[in-house]
Amino acid sequence: MVDATSLTGYENRFDILLDSGLYHCLSADDRPAYVSALARAARSGRLKYLFPDTRFDARTQGRSPVR
């Protein structure tokens, strides 16, 4: 297992990165480190996809808490 907020050992390794929910499970404090780790793990100029969490959340009147 690897810490997703550091991705140590995976620098410049991937052509495509796909996040389909992990970002939204992280605390607000951990999110910047995660995004930085993704940037380091991707080869320069490659694709990075972050899919927003669009589930209904009554606490935010239906809006996803992070966009």
Rank of each mutant, 00 (worst) to 15 (best):
Y34S: 06
V35T: 11
L18Y: 04
Y34P: 10
A42G: 00
H24C: 10
L47Q: 07
D3G: 12
L50G: 00
L22K: 09
Y23E: 00
F56S: 12
L18Q: 10
G21F: 07
S36V: 04
N12I: 00
Y10G: 06
R31D: 14
R59S: 02
A39N: 10
D29L: 06
D15M: 04
F14M: 11
A58H: 04
A58D: 09
L26Y: 15
V2Q: 01
D3T: 12
R59E: 02
Y10D: 00
R13P: 04
R63A: 03
D3H: 03
L18K: 01
F56I: 15
S44L: 06
I16W: 13
L22C: 13
L7E: 03
R55W: 08
S64P: 10
A41I: 07
D30E: 04
D19A: 14
V2C: 01
E11S: 12
Y34K: 03
M1D: 06
F14P: 15
T8S: 15
P65S: 12
I16S: 06
V2R: 01
L26E: 15
K48C: 14
D53W: 13
P52N: 10
A42V: 00
Y34N: 08
P52I: 12
Y10F: 11
S36P: 00
Y49R: 04
G21I: 08
D29S: 12
C25A: 10
P32M: 00
K48F: 06
M1F: 10
Q61P: 01
K48P: 08
R40H: 02
D3S: 01
S6Q: 08
V35Y: 01
L7T: 05
L17I: 15
E11Y: 11
S44P: 11
N12D: 12
R13D: 02
L17W: 14
